[in-house]
Amino acid sequence: MRRDQNFNFSTFQRYFIAVAGIVITIAILEFFHSRINSTTVAFIFLTIVLFVATFLGRNPALLVSLVAMLGFNYFFLPPVRTWTISDPQNLVAWAMFTITSIIVGQLSASVKRRAEEAEKQKDEIKNLYDELQTAFEKASETEALRRSEKLKTALLDAVTHDLRTPLTSIKASITTLLEDEKNGAENFRLDNDNRREFLAVINEETDRLNDFIEGMVELARIEAGELNLRQTWSEIPEIIQSALNRAEPFLKDSHIKIMLEKDLPLICADSNLLAEVLY
C-alpha cells in the first residue's frame, strides 16, 4: 500500500511545521554559535530544506529556504545580527547557500512528486491487472460450466445408450418367450434350441447390465476418493485373458490374436481393474 508522505497535513499545518522547524533550528544553532562554523550551519540548513521538501512539499521547502537564507545571514555571517555582509567571501557563500538550498528543495520535491506519480501508476496498473484477471477468471468459469454441461449431456447420452442396449435385448427375448408360451402347445413355434438361445441372451445381457452398474459404482468411488486398490503381483497375459473373458459374448464371430513379448515381468497392480480398463 502506498504511504502518504505528506502525513495528511493541511496546507497551513505544513507551512507552520516547516517554519517552526527552521526557526527552532536557528535558535539552537545560534545558542552554539561560538562552537560551530558557518559551513556546518549551512549544511544543517540544507538538511532541513531537504527534509521539508521530501515530507511537506515543494512550497513549504521554498519558504524554509528563504527563512534559512535570512537566518544564515543575520545570525551566522559576520557582522552577526545585522543584514550586512562585510566579507566578499561570506557574500559568495551566502549567495551559494541560497541558490543551493532552493535548488535542493525543488529537486527533492520534484523527485518526491515523480515517485508518487510512479507509485500511482503502479497502483493503476495493478488495479487494471486485477480487473483483467477477474474478467479472465469469470470467462474461464463460464467456459468451464459450458464444457461441464456439454460433458454431462454426452455422459448422459452414453449411459442411456449403455443401459438401453441390454434392456432392449432382454425385453425382446422375454417378450418372444412369453408370446410363445401364450400361444400354447398347439401353436408351438420355438424349439428347445431357440428357447435356450433366448435364455442365453437374457443371461448375457443381464451380466452386461450388472457389469455396467458395477462400473458406474466404481467410477463414483473414484470420484469420491474411496476406491481401494487391491494390488497384487500379476502376469500381463492373465490380465488380458480376463478382459477377453469379459468380452467373450461379443467376440463370438471375431478372431482375436494376442502378440506379447516373452518373459514379461510381473506387475504390481489391481488386475481386476486393469481388465476392466481393457474391457
Rank of each mutant, 00 (worst) to 15 (best):
Y15G: 00
A20Q: 01
I24Q: 02
I24P: 00
F31H: 14
I36Y: 08
I44V: 15
L46I: 12
T47K: 07
F51N: 07
L56V: 08
L56I: 10
R58Y: 06
V64F: 02
L66F: 15
V67W: 05
V67A: 11
A68G: 13
M69P: 00
L70I: 14
L70Q: 06
F72K: 01
N73Q: 11
R81G: 00
T84W: 03
D87I: 04
D87E: 09
N90K: 05
A95W: 05
M96P: 00
F97W: 06
I102C: 10
I103C: 12
A109S: 06
R113N: 06
A115W: 06
E117M: 09
E124H: 08
I125P: 01
N127G: 07
L132K: 10
T142G: 09
T142M: 12
T142V: 11
E143K: 11
E143I: 15
L151W: 07
T153K: 11
L156N: 08
D157E: 14
A158Y: 11
A172Y: 02
T175L: 05
E186P: 02
D193N: 09
E197H: 11
F198T: 03
E218G: 00
I222E: 07
A224D: 08
E235A: 13
E235K: 14
P237K: 10
E238D: 13
N245K: 09
A247W: 09
P249R: 05
L251H: 03
I256Q: 06
E261C: 09
D263I: 01
L266D: 11
L278W: 07
